[in-house]
Amino acid sequence: MFNQLFPNVDWVKMWEATYETLYMTIISTGVTFVLGLAIGILLFLTSPHQIWANKIVNLLTGSLVNIFRSIPFIVLIILLIPFTKFLLGTIRGVEAALPALIIGAAPFYARLVLIALREIDKGVIEAARSMGAKTSTIIWKVLIPESMPALLSGITVTAVALVGYTAMAGIIGAGGLGNLAFIDGFQRSREDVTLTATIVILIIVFILQFIGDFITTKTDKR
């Protein structure tokens, strides 16, 4: 029945493309989480009245974040071609999409991290300081655990956005479901391939959202 409804779909290729999309999404989400968290924490701690209050560092980091967040992703990929080539020696394939995906998503996530950290009760940080906590202790034992639900829902939103980014990266040759839908589906007028790729992407997004929501609720003890 499947073959009648989707006559042109090559299921092996479809599975391969799904694997590539998942690979790009998972790796870039993982790196974005770490990088975005680090940048977000730096932004937070250097903002006025915080432990590392520093106008220059704050302004510089904030500007970089804003610049990379403002460049449309499709333009960013093209801008980063020389960088990717320098880094990996090629601009084709799944790996080649990762630098652009991470550089596009990390500043976005850093902003979400900053919002999450600002929501933390100032009194809790003051309490930790009054106990004689070091800044590293405050980061690991207060800032991150106390903002965990918001950090997790933020990374869920980012991961979903990254699925969309991988599809865009696919169009310029990174592989994955976006690539399949464009090359196999659109350019060869095989609507059933485009439709199937879309459905698979939707399923991935739903699953990501479900997992994200589930873990967020689990960690929230407020």
Binding site: G123, S130, M131, P145, E146, K221, R222
Partner: peptide
């Protein structure tokens, strides 16, 4: 020096300031 001194000068707060995650 200050951090060690603070371990012997504790503080309690109007809004308790407990970590909700613990």
């Amino acid at each position: 020096q200050l951090r060690q001194a603070r371990q012997k000068i504790s503080m309690i707060f109007q809004h308790f300031n407990l970590l909700w995650s613990r």
